[in-house]
Simulated scan of single mutants.
Amino acid sequence: MPTRERIRHDLAVRRTTVERVSWLTDTMVRVTVLGESLRGFSAPGPNDHVKLFFPDPESGVLTTPEITAEGLKRPTDGLILSRDFTPLNFRENGSNGLPELDIDFVIHGDDAPATSFASHAHAGQELGIAGPRGSKLVPEGISRAVLIADETALPAYTRWLRLLPPEVKVTPIVQIQDDETEDYLTDEHRSRGTLEVLYREDGPGQLIEAVRSLGSIEDDTYVWAAGEANELVEVRRHFRRDLGLSKDQVEVEGYWKRGIVNLDHHAPLDPSDPD
């Protein structure tokens, strides 16, 4: 049965500066931040996440929380806008010898804090970063990994591919909006297994159909899926209930949910079936 080691990290809140902005597709943008405060940053788990703190969109002032014995304490004054994101690439020695961190954003076309920041990000702008508080390393004792991701989970999917041992067979399923979003996928994403790409614009039901077509799952296979919470409820039920896989073998994460602002991805994906 697969096992995943957990690592705890000292909590740190880092103030960084945008170094460059790179549009990867019409709806995905990479923001690279740097700063001495990133020295020693560590995120060894494939689906680690950090909390980003965005400047006030009107004043441009960045307010970050304080670290207390209980965790992060938000000040009573100053607007704090935050969201959880996957840190993609970290370079201890980047531009001018300073540490750099790449973070990829999906532009949803609304005025949410993350979308607003990423859509108008520019060099010199500040960004606060806290975490990760902990990491779950890639599973040990597996010969195969089933990886399922939508646009918001593509950075984590990228990290899974990089961190899994080369001898582990990968079965990847990616669901995206349309073929323009597919430009994000590089040779790196297609190098492990036969990548199945689903287009959301082709209609509902494709994801669960692709999942069911996988057939039985062996004991030495680990399943990770992340994306829109509603679509993943049925996916999780299939693996956990229909196939009877244990919670140690399956991790399904709702990174966002239609109609919900700032979804708590730590909450149960399916409240009626929290285990």
Rank of each mutant, 00 (worst) to 15 (best):
N93W: 12
F53T: 02
L137S: 12
R30K: 15
V18F: 14
E70S: 11
T32Q: 09
G40H: 10
G97I: 02
V33L: 04
A43T: 01
L88H: 04
A118I: 06
R133D: 10
T76M: 09
D111S: 13
G78R: 02
T115H: 15
G128T: 05
P113M: 02
T25Y: 04
A121F: 02
T115W: 14
P87V: 06
I107C: 06
E126F: 05
A114F: 09
S42N: 02
G124Q: 08
A112V: 09
A114C: 14
F85L: 08
V138K: 01
S59I: 05
N93E: 14
E58I: 13
L137P: 06
K51V: 04
G94H: 12
S59W: 13
V21F: 02
V106L: 00
L101A: 13
V106K: 08
L24T: 01
T64Y: 04
L88V: 07
A118L: 09
A123Q: 15
G124M: 11
T63N: 06
G35R: 03
A121G: 09
R30W: 04
G109P: 11
S116A: 14
V138R: 11
F41A: 02
D56W: 01
L98C: 11
I129Y: 03
T64F: 01
V29C: 00
P139I: 11
R74D: 01
G78K: 05
A12G: 11
P113K: 13
R83G: 05
I67M: 10
T76S: 14
G131Q: 07
G71N: 10
L81I: 07
V31C: 09
T64D: 00
L62A: 12
A43M: 12
A123S: 14
R30Y: 08
R14I: 03
S22W: 15
F105L: 08
D48S: 03
T76H: 12
P44Y: 08
V13E: 05
